[in-house]
Design a protein around this nucleic acid. Structure first.
Lengths: 144, 144
DNA sequence: TTTAATTCGGATATTTTTATCTTATTTATT
DNA sequence: AATAAATAAGATAAAAATATCCGAATTAAA
């Protein structure tokens, strides 16, 4: 469904959100430990998130990544997914046709559309604050 | 969502079903032309479908691929997807956790579960006969 | 001003997926 | 028996995704 990079990005964002709420910046190393991902690859992904303006970064000593507290509840999963995987999953044809549309549909177009829309609705309506809270209260986990 | 191989497999199966209903076997070349895919790669995928017992193959002159007429309506998209992509999409964790479950859920487990189930329901309930008919009647298309 | 801690950027390596090529095997027809 | 048409199987190639490494730039604090 999502690329590995995107899975890491989602988990990383949740952890950064959680830390940011506690006014703590985190490094790629801390993130990687927390979400069980390769450090350097995770760092690359963080750069993408910064470029896409979902996460803020601070260089130098006492630097790291954070998400402005006020924004935590405003950042949705769909923004993270779009930033890393693009919006093919929201717009693309289920069978990979370039020109799939209402008027020239692939065989699964109509069925697939429903799924896609449900997925988008879900990702739109799920934000980092909710997810961070879930971790914080022990309702869910970022690694096994 | 699906791998490219899986997208090809679905389209190929629909075309083979369509042909089989007309009592015609088809070659990888014909399939590739019809679904706009690379011939040799398509041939490999057909082999997998044969191994998974979804398609029958016949070697030698007048050979090719077919699906027994009686089975066309019995073969669902979920069977094709499972054969090519495995059932990670039906069972796997949305964030790639190995040990994601009701009692140890990832942050998106419950939301994701709904989507997964809807997808499975959809793929289970869509069969090759319906899809072939859609193409046959010009309601949908296998390529642009 | 030096140092240590950090992100950034580019180069490289590895693995997986996608794709091609070549040869062997099978089979209906002549 | 020979031939032509087909799938099967294995080797290889190319592209994309995943992952690592290293040096440069930045920054807070000592």
């Amino acid at each position: 469904m999502f690329s590995k990079a995107c899975e890491y990005a989602i988990k990383a964002c949740i952890f950064v959100a959680q830390s940011s709420i506690r006014n703590e910046r985190v490094t790629p190393k801390q993130i990687a430990e927390e979400i069980n991902s390769p450090v350097a690859f995770t760092a690359k992904i963080m750069q993408q998130l910064v470029k896409n303006n979902l996460v803020s970064s601070y260089r130098g000593a006492y630097g790291g990544f954070e998400i402005e507290k006020d924004r935590v509840a405003q950042i949705s999963l769909s923004q993270i997914v779009s930033a890393i995987d693009g919006d093919k999953i929201f717009n693309g044809c289920g069978l990979g046709l370039d020109a799939c549309s209402e008027s020239h549909p692939c065989p699964v177009h109509h069925q697939y559309k429903t799924i896609r829309q449900d997925l988008q609705k879900l990702l739109d309506s799920t934000n980092l604050k909710q997810l961070a809270l879930g971790i914080e209260t022990g309702l869910s986990y970022l690694k096994t």
